[in-house]
Design a protein around this nucleic acid. Structure first.
Lengths: 213, 213
DNA sequence: CGTTGCGTTGATCTCTATCAAAAAAGGTGG
DNA sequence: CCACCTTTTTTGATAGAGATCAACGCAACG
């Protein structure tokens, strides 16, 4: 079974026995989603939660004016909409792929029982929750800072040291980046230029930014 | 034991047997905090989590400029800092009473074991988490709306029908309300006046607002 | 190549923060 | 209950960050 190998890489399931893993795998489904394609939409009846096997998805809301607001981006191994297990009847937000991705859909049916039989699983769930919660707290706090600060933090947190330089490869579109940081594409563009003028960054290409010192 | 009666009113503990309740109670402590007094501060070593027995507390961050940013307000029966149970070593935010309150402090020591022995407890924890998470999602989304909209939502959500009128009793200071809604007291004041001019509300007194139709 | 969506640039506008100061409300002690 | 002090709230004036609108260049793609 192919799903099994994916499941093993997901932190949540690392405590399960082979048999349990098989049980989960037998009811789960691998799903390929192309960039831009939706996984679920706000208000849909929630029967499954998901895990990202490979790729990246955005979880977002759309307000009355039609503006998209990205809550978070989930990458390899991350869970999506696990709140489904705890009473939520409809998805509270939208989810769509921002790269071609492979995701695993796991029906909630029967999963609560699995948790009840595997208390350690619940601890894992909760630590995943804690992290998510922490992320949201940081995000709420960040929203009181300026766009320049939020963008700087994003660039630094998504950069890696390479050949003595601190490099940030932008793996999401600037439109999505704007939405994630709660601003507009225009402001992102202008702020990047400003940061470059201040010699804080160097824009090497559209998708690659060097962070100075 | 006085703590026992408080514990029973907390959703989280409603599934425990009398013995377990006693066990929790025996290591817990009732704590009275006066309005304004701190429960814990960001960065403090986290050894306990809390439940509000009676009163209200605010959980907040303070940014570099010293501005206070309220994440959420917790009332009777709500948990505080339960993330302590799942690996967090230091409190990630501050907590202070906004009314004279009684809170229960529960040492994390031994509590994880209790969860492992009571899987249902973990489900309760997780549903509490879900709610918190949902609250944060709403808050992040709301921050992209105008202050007028955020304030309107707050007023409506905190109002009750009474004698044929929809009444909102403000039980927190406008300063705190401003911080909770991510704005300034001045803007709250002005926005309330604007809403009244638009006949959307009637300001009956400093602490009581009538919502029109 | 035309089309379509993304990114940049320019110009403008408005919401909201901020500063300052007065007014109102709460507490406290006599 | 009053006088006094502190904190909160309101009001006014001002400035600035960032949204929005519009237009254009650009790359991807059928």
């Amino acid at each position: 079974m192919k799903i099994n190998s994916f499941l093993k890489n997901i932190f949540l399931f690392s405590e399960l026995t082979e048999t349990e893993l098989n049980n989960v795998a037998s009811v789960s489904a691998l799903k390929r989603v192309r960039k831009g394609q939706h996984v679920f939409e706000e208000g849909d009846t929630a029967t499954s939660f998901y895990a990202v096997a490979h790729g990246a998805v955005k979880v977002f809301k759309i307000n009355e004016e039609g503006t998209e607001n990205i809550l978070h981006v989930q990458n390899d191994g991350d869970l999506i909409a696990e709140a489904v297990l705890f009473g939520i009847k409809r998805y509270p937000a939208n989810c769509a792929a921002i790269k071609d991705s492979t995701i695993i859909s796991i029906p909630k049916e029967g999963f609560v029982d699995l948790i009840l039989r595997n208390p350690k699983l619940s601890i894992k769930f909760m630590s995943a929750y804690s992290r998510r919660l922490k992320g949201f707290v940081d995000k709420i706090e960040a929203l009181s800072n300026s766009v320049e600060q939020r963008l700087s933090v994003y660039l630094i947190e998504h950069s890696v040291r390479s050949k003595g330089r601190q490099v940030c490869e932008l793996d999401i579109s600037k439109k999505d980046l704007a939405s994630l940081l709660g601003t507009s594409p225009e402001t992102i563009s202008r702020t990047l230029n400003r940061l470059e003028k201040q010699d804080k960054i160097a824009i090497e290409s559209n998708k690659r930014i060097i962070i100075r010192q």
